[in-house]
């Protein structure tokens, strides 16, 4: 069964984070809590904060919407994590912690609690570039699956 949609983004990472959230609801997930050092994401009521390895660059992020849990994606991923949140406005936006949108909003189910599974790889290489390089694209990859919980 294929996903309902698959979109690719290159969000701006600032302070080693980027965010997926309902843009019409508050509080912003970054107000509610941030991922601990060993975590790759932290969910709030209306969104998720992702912890990147690098800073001031643009990782490759793919977001897939599914009708049901697709299971862990194939391929070699360094880390995966899951969480739940709601998007009552029916919209989701991937953006930097300073508000810069990474692309068009996603439309999602209004009523449902959303389940998210994030897979990532390349965070270590991005971390190694921390003091050396900014404004690059890729290196760190994310695959984010969304489905109604």
């Amino acid at each position: 069964m294929p996903p309902i949609s698959r979109l690719q983004y290159a969000p701006r990472v600032d302070h080693r984070m980027f965010v997926l959230l309902d843009p019409r609801r508050k509080p912003s997930p970054q107000e509610e809590g941030l991922p601990e050092d060993e975590e790759i994401l932290s969910a709030g009521q209306h969104g998720v904060v992702f912890r990147s390895g690098g800073d001031l660059f643009r990782p490759a992020v793919t977001i897939e919407r599914w009708a049901a849990d697709p299971g862990v994606a194939e391929g070699e991923w360094d880390e995966t994590a899951e969480a739940s949140f709601a998007a009552p406005s029916g919209r989701l936006r991937l953006r930097s912690i300073m508000g810069e949108p990474a692309g068009p909003d996603l439309e999602v189910e209004v009523e449902a609690l959303l389940r998210i599974r994030a897979h990532t790889r390349g965070r270590g290489e991005a971390m190694e570039r921390l003091t050396l390089e900014t404004d690059y694209t890729g290196v760190e990859e994310w695959l984010i699956q969304l489905w109604p919980a």
């Binding site: 600032d14 302070h15 080693r16 984070m17 508050k26 509080p27 912003s28 970054q30 107000e31 941030l34 601990e36 050092d37 904060v49 912890r51 930097s96 912690i97 300073m98 508000g99």
Partner: peptide
């Protein structure tokens, strides 16, 4: 500490936004 720096940036971004 990286966590302090990230937290400070997150708070600043959220404040800009709100």
């Amino acid at each position: 500490d990286g966590s302090d720096n990230s937290s400070g940036g997150a708070v600043l971004g959220a404040w800009y936004e709100s």
